[in-house]
């Protein structure tokens, strides 16, 4: 396994006029691992992911994915990465198959039909493959968004609350597919989530953010031991409310 991080934030800063959204954070995610980015609302998670996706230009520092500076050479990395977020949708009038076809072409997938058939089988899209995306349930849409995120078999996957607003059964199903994909492709995943069960289950490591800074960083087990808590939810509350190790003024 390469020692070069698959995803890295190097002294990363984002300022919006007077507001500092991300304040000089540093972290590196090893290839093939899953890292959770945790923090309350306004902690800077989405801005950090935005900089790693190349959608937000850093004020200082470097957001690096697969060895590439996303502010300067994002086009070298974009074909090998992908993302899923509930805040971005796919064209509603196009069917699932049509959407996947367009994205497969954009990502340069060689065998478009074959890849769609594979995704349809893996993510159980068959029954609604020819239905417009706008007519799908929330759970079905999430499966389609995941299919889009996996269409190019990415080496790096950025997920912003991938199971938000899903029922527990569908959310569990999605997590299983993510675990399968990570195992099969040795992909690196960066996950922003408010769901602590999800983070405990999927992540090898958790980076905790508060007010734009990293206040703690470690494996779920190490964090539980450090804060003397039984689950990550309590650790999250300690960090969000400025208690315990991660407390900041």
């Amino acid at each position: 396994m390469s020692s070069t991080p698959a995803i890295a934030a190097e002294d990363l800063v984002k300022r919006y006029r007077e507001t500092v959204a991300v304040d000089g954070i540093d972290f590196a995610v090893a290839p093939g691992s899953v890292c959770g980015l945790l923090g309350g609302n306004g902690a800077g998670k989405t801005t950090t992911i935005g900089m790693l996706m190349g959608l937000v230009a850093p004020s200082a520092g470097i957001a690096r994915v697969l060895g590439h500076d996303m502010a300067r050479e994002r086009h070298r990395a974009l074909g090998r990465m992908n993302f899923e977020s509930p805040y971005v949708e796919m064209p509603h009038r196009l069917s699932v198959r049509e959407n996947l076809r367009v994205f497969a072409m954009l990502y340069g997938v060689e065998d478009v039909r074959g890849r769609i058939a594979e995704l349809a089988a893996t993510l159980e899209l068959g029954e609604f493959l020819d239905r417009p995306v706008g007519k799908l349930s929330a759970g079905q849409k999430t499966r389609v968004a995941l299919a889009k995120a996996l269409v190019n078999e990415p080496d790096a996957l950025l997920l912003d609350e991938p199971t938000a607003s899903l029922d527990p059964d569908t959310a569990d199903w999605i997590r299983s597919r993510l675990e399968d994909y990570r195992r099969r492709r040795s992909a690196t995943i960066l996950l922003a989530s408010h769901n602590m069960r999800e983070v405990e289950r999927l992540c090898d490591r958790v980076v905790m953010m508060r007010r734009g800074r990293i206040v703690d960083d470690g494996s779920p087990a190490a964090l539980l031991a450090r804060y003397g808590r039984a689950d990550l939810e309590d650790v999250f509350l300690d960090v969000a409310r400025g208690r315990g190790k991660g407390a900041a003024p």
Binding site: L55, H75, F83, Y87, V88, Y107
Partner: peptide, 13 residues
């Protein structure tokens, strides 16, 4: 359609 984020994350130049 709120699809711009998807497009900007593809290799589309």
């Amino acid at each position: 359609s709120r699809n711009m984020g998807n497009l900007l994350m593809t290799p589309l130049r």
